[in-house]
Simulated scan of single mutants.
Amino acid sequence: MTRAEPSRRRVMGAGFGAVAAALTGCSAGSGPVRRLRLATGPEGGPYNAFGRALARAVAASGHGLEIVPVATAASVDNLRQLEDGSVDLALAMADAAEDAVLGREPFARPAPVTALARIYVNYTHLLVPRDGPVRAVEQLAGRPVAAGAAGSGVRVVAGRVLRAAGVDGGAAARERELGLAESVSALREGAVDALFWSGGVPTPALAELTGQRPVRFLPLDGHVSALRERYGPVYTAVTLPAGVYGLTAPVATIGVGNYLLARRGVPDGAVRDLLRVVFDRWRDLLREVTAGARLEPRFAISTGAVPLHPGAVAHYREVYG
């Protein structure tokens, strides 16, 4: 997996000519509107917000596309819907997307999905009550933990962090499959001793929680190496900055990219038109989910083991060289 980036450069270099020659147009005025279903996430969540913002931007672009956001459980659910053809596009965390492409659990076989762009980074949040006894992941053994909804990317990363910390087997935490709103309520009411979340910074629901109950954000950077060794470079060290959530000092944690994905059968021209909108309107799109992020081509093409869609290869090569 460490050789993914050089391989991608070769694809975008020598192989581009053949790809570009095969492109068929799908731009404004060339025919009827093409409707593409986009698997997002739960209502009120960041993926759903991004999907709705993208739908509005595409509708205003005149590119002959219509994006239809579909509410889902998020990453794992989205990838399954993409694989079975229920949707044309999807948002997913990088670790879940690579699991799908490589046929790793929870996927029974490799899924034929492609990437359009790596759009922003999720920050892994682990919150505990400030007045409680837990000060490290290892101390969650035997305790109730809100570990993300079933079918979500949060569920994947939470389980992996707990296993990396040795909080499994006989020392397992009592993981509860809860969505973000349910997780916040459970921590606020004392029904769980910790809350995992993976999302942009700040996540509004967590910002609201920190104003209602004193919490502690636990550092997770000590587990990055173990995760990278087992699952590859989809996991990186990032920092929750001082000031966000009322933090008086930075908190080092784990970053995971988010990909915009497509079925291989989505026409190249539709992909190119969609990416034009994404790069034209990235400030508006990312404002919905995370503060201070930028979308740049060298960042966007870094999709690891998930291959770029041919239309995406053509777009990046044509626009950015």
Rank of each mutant, 00 (worst) to 15 (best):
L247G: 04
A205T: 08
G232Y: 06
G243V: 13
G222P: 07
L220E: 08
L227T: 04
L206G: 02
R264V: 11
G222M: 08
H223G: 09
V256I: 04
P214F: 09
P219R: 13
T239P: 04
A226L: 12
R228G: 05
L227D: 02
R216P: 06
A237F: 04
T239A: 14
G243H: 00
D221E: 15
T248V: 11
A242I: 14
G211I: 15
G246S: 02
V224S: 03
T236C: 05
A249P: 05
P214N: 14
A249S: 12
V256E: 15
R230E: 14
V251R: 08
E229R: 14
A249K: 11
Y231V: 00
A252C: 10
N258E: 10
T239H: 11
G232D: 06
L206V: 02
L260H: 00
A252M: 09
V224A: 09
P250G: 08
A249V: 09
T210C: 14
G255D: 02
E208F: 11
V224Y: 07
R263G: 08
I254H: 03
P241V: 02
A252V: 11
A207W: 08
V215H: 07
I254K: 02
R264T: 14
V234A: 13
L220R: 05
L260S: 00
L261A: 02
D221P: 10
A226S: 12
A252L: 13
I254N: 02
R216C: 06
E208G: 11
G243Q: 01
L209N: 07
G222W: 04
A242H: 07
A205N: 06
A205V: 04
G211K: 06
R213V: 11
V234D: 15
V234I: 03
V215P: 02
Y231A: 00
R230K: 15
V215G: 05
Y231W: 12
L247W: 06
I254Y: 06
A242M: 05
H223L: 12
G211W: 15
I254P: 02
Y231D: 13
A207Y: 08
L218P: 15
V251Q: 08
L247S: 04
V256C: 07
G211Y: 13
Y245V: 10
L240V: 05
P202M: 03
G246N: 08
